[in-house]
Amino acid sequence: MRISILLIILGAGLATYLTRFPLMVISGNREISPKLAKLMSFIAPAVLTSLIAPAIFLREGRIDLSLSNSYIIASVITAIIAYFSKNMLVTVISGIASVAVLMYIL
C-alpha cells in the first residue's frame, strides 16, 4: 500500500467522520436551519457534475463539441436511461454499450 494513497484514505475517512458524529453526539433535538439544509442539498449534484463535465467535453485540454466526440451523445443516451431506469447497473452497462456502438458507427 502506497503511503500517499494511505494518507488520502485516512484524511478522507477523518473528513467523513467529522461530518457524521458531531450532531449525533451533541444535538438533543436541535434542527439545522432550513436555509443551510437547502444549500447543502445542492453540493452533491454540483460536485458530481464538476467531475464529469470535463471528462465528457474536453479532449486533450480543448472543448470538443464535434460529433466525433462520442462521449457527448453517449452521455445524453445514458442520462435518459438513468432517468427512466433509476438503476445504477442498467445505467452503467447501457452507457458503456452506447459508447461502443457510437465508436463503431461514427
Binding site: 458530481l48 457534475t49 445514458t78 438513468a82 445504477m88 445505467t91 452503467v92 452507457g95
Partner: peptide
C-alpha cells in the same frame, strides 16, 4: 466511460 455513466447514474 464507465465512470461518466456511473456518475450520471447518481446525478
Amino acid at each position: 466511460f464507465a465512470f461518466v455513466a456511473a456518475f450520471l447514474g447518481m446525478l
